[in-house]
Design a protein around this nucleic acid. Sequence first.
DNA 1: AGGATCAAACTAACTAGTTGGTTAAACTTG
DNA 2: CAAGTTTAACCAACTAGTTAGTTTGATCCT
Lengths: 193, 193
Amino acid sequence: MSPRDAEATKKRILEAAVAEFAQHGFSGARIDRVASAANANKSLIYTYYGSKDQLFDAVLEAAIGDLHESVPFTPDDLPAFGARLFDFLVAHPVEIRIDAWRRLERPTNTTLEQQMFAEKIAALDAIGSTAADGTSSADLLVMVLAVSWAWATVPEALGALASAEIDLRRKQVVRSIEVLCEADFTASLNEHA
Amino acid sequence: MSPRDAEATKKRILEAAVAEFAQHGFSGARIDRVASAANANKSLIYTYYGSKDQLFDAVLEAAIGDLHESVPFTPDDLPAFGARLFDFLVAHPVEIRIDAWRRLERPTNTTLEQQMFAEKIAALDAIGSTAADGTSSADLLVMVLAVSWAWATVPEALGALASAEIDLRRKQVVRSIEVLCEADFTASLNEHA
DNA sequence: AGGATCAAACTAACTAGTTGGTTAAACTTG
DNA sequence: CAAGTTTAACCAACTAGTTAGTTTGATCCT
C-alpha cells in the first residue's frame, strides 16, 4: 500500500469497486464498503470518480473493455473463439456478474459495446461463407455467444447436477459451436408449431 | 378493485411486487412503491408477507413455478421444448428479468428449482438415446437451455444489430437444438488449445 | 327489523437506522 | 510555503419496519 500516490489510490478504489459492484450490483453496493475495502477515504471516491453512478460506469467500461480485449475474435474459427471466451469466463467469474448486472441495471450503456459487436459482425460478413444462409451473421454470433456463456449463466441448481469437470464442459462448448457453424439453417426439419 | 377483500389485496400486492422486483431487483425495489402501485397500505405488506425478503421469495417462487409449469418438458423432442420455452420467454419478459435477478441476488434459492431440474434430467436419462455419448444428459440440457434463452439474455447492443423478426429467431433456436441433439460429442475435430 | 358488539381489514404517522454526498481542516512533499 | 492529497465529522434525504388508532362488514341479541 502506498499512501500519497493518487494514481495508486485511484486504482485501489476501482478494484474495490469492481468487487463490490460484482457482488451487490449498483443498488446493493455501498460506497462506504468500497472506501474501506480500498483503504481510502470515502470522499476520495467523489474527487476521483464524481458519483456512485460514474464509478459504476467506470467499472462497467473497464470490465467490458477487458473482456473484449482479452478474447480476440477470429471470424474464420468461431469454435476457437468460443473456447477462448469460455476460458476467460472460467478465469474471471467477476466479469460474469458485472455483465449480468449491467444488462439489468444499465441496459442502454451500449456506446462502447455496440461498436465492439459491430466490428465482429463486420468481420463475419467479410468472410461470408462461415454460416449457411437463412440467418445473418449477427444471428450466428448470438448463438455462439449463448453457447460460450452457457456454463456461466446456468442456474446453480442445474450446474450442481451437471458435469463438474472444466475440460468436459469446454469440449462440449467447442463441439457445439462446430456443429452450429456447419449446420444448414435454410429449412427447418419439423415445424414444432 | 375491491377493498375489504384480504385475498384480493394480497394478490394485488404480489402482482405489484412482481413488477417492482422485475424492474429494480431486490436492493433497488422500494416497499413504498409496491404499496402505492398495489393501492394498499404499506403495513399490509408486512402483515401479509412478513418482510421485504419474504415478499421477494414469494415473487421468485411464483415466477419459477409459473415458468416450469407453463413449459412442459418433452425429453423425446427437445427442439419442441426449446420452441415452447422460447415462446414463453417472448411472451413473459418480466420472468426473464426476475430470473436474472434471482441468479444474482438469491443464488442459493434452489430448493424448488433443483427438484424441477432433477425431474428433467431423470426424464432424459430414462430415454437415454437422445444425445450421443461423451456428455451427460444434464450437460445436454444446459446447452438446450442456453440456446433457448439465447435471445432473452443477449446484450441489447447485439440484439439491436441482429434479426428483429421473432419467427426467424424461433426457427434458428429450433434448428440449433436439432443439430445439437444429432451431433456426436465423443471426439472433438480440432483441439483449439 | 335494528341497534350493540367484535374481529378483521385498513390507514396515517412515526421511528430508528442507513446512505450518498459534502466540507473544512490536516497532512505530505517538492 | 503551496499545491496536491487525505481525513474525520457531518448532513439531508431516504427506507424498512412499527404502532396506535380507524373503518367496515358480519354476527348476535332483543
